[in-house]
Every structure is written in C-alpha cells, then in structure tokens.
C-alpha cells in the first residue's frame, strides 16, 4: 500500500549537536587541546578544529597530531582574530566589526578557512562603500 518506510529528519539536529559541543567547550569537558594565542589559553576539541580549518587538519590528521595537546598560534596582527573564529566554529556565527575584521581576516587566512576569508573580504569591502 505505497510507502514502505519513513525517514524522520530532525531539521535542527546539526545545530543541536553544535550547541552541545559549545557547552562542552565552555565547561572544559573532553577538550583535548590548548591553543596559546599571545600567551592566552583557549581550550577546544581537536575534532571541531580539524573539521573547520585546513591548518588544523594538517596539524592533527596524522598520528603525530594525537600527542599535540598545546599549540602556539602567532601573536601580532592575527592574535585578536582567533577567539572570534573559535566562537564561529562552535556557533556558526561570525562576529565582525570594522575594528575587528582585519584581525579576523588575518587569523582566518592563517587557519586556512577560505569561506570565512571571503566573508571578511566582503564585509571589509562593504564597509568602504557609502
């Protein structure tokens, strides 16, 4: 009599999972790497980092990546951009302002997050337009 089966698609599942991962990050549960940015520690999950960034993919994909539990990222112009990028990875929301966009752009370039780089370029370009 027609339909043989049903697939129930939970449309908000991906955002529910990401929200829980963000809560785990904020509470330090199962975080397995510390990113040092200008001496400031940022705790995170390697699995989320490797899923979002070509740079972290290169670092963590091999067997050697298992033993990496502290990773220093560059200070200087990029430093202020790393925390917003980490928030983006865990929330899908990228906070940009004219003041922060250049450092987020620099950090996203370093972390090989091409789509964020493009979004930063579009934001900066739009902010120049009247």
């Amino acid at each position: 009599d027609g339909a043989l089966g049903y697939v129930r698609e939970f449309t908000r599942h991906s955002s529910d999972v990401l929200g829980n991962l963000n809560e785990l990050r904020l509470r330090g549960i199962l975080t397995d790497v510390t990113l040092l940015v200008g001496g400031q520690p940022l705790r995170a999950h390697k699995a989320v980092l490797i899923a979002c960034s070509g740079f972290f993919y290169s670092i963590f994909r091999g067997r050697a990546g298992v033993g990496v539990d502290v990773l220093s990222l560059p200070g200087g112009p990029e430093a202020g951009g790393f925390a917003p990028l980490l928030d983006f990875m865990y929330t899908s929301r990228l906070r940009l302002s004219p003041a922060t966009a250049p450092s987020v752009l620099a950090a996203a370039t370093y972390l090989q997050m091409e789509h964020v780089v493009q979004a930063c370029h579009r934001f900066i370009q739009a902010s120049y337009e009247p």
């Binding site: 027609g2 339909a3 698609e9 908000r12």
Partner: peptide, 22 residues
C-alpha cells in the same frame, strides 16, 4: 519497491540539552 520512503520533517529538538554552566 525500495524507493518508496517518505521523509517526515521533525522540527523539534533532536537530542538532550547539556545544562548550561552556572
């Protein structure tokens, strides 16, 4: 007749919510 599968959308929450840190 393996192709007859209906997809039903579930708009509600899919998993438990980890309590927010106080």
């Amino acid at each position: 007749h393996e192709g007859l599968v209906a997809t039903v959308k579930e708009a509600g929450r899919s998993i438990h919510e980890i309590p927010r840190e106080e």
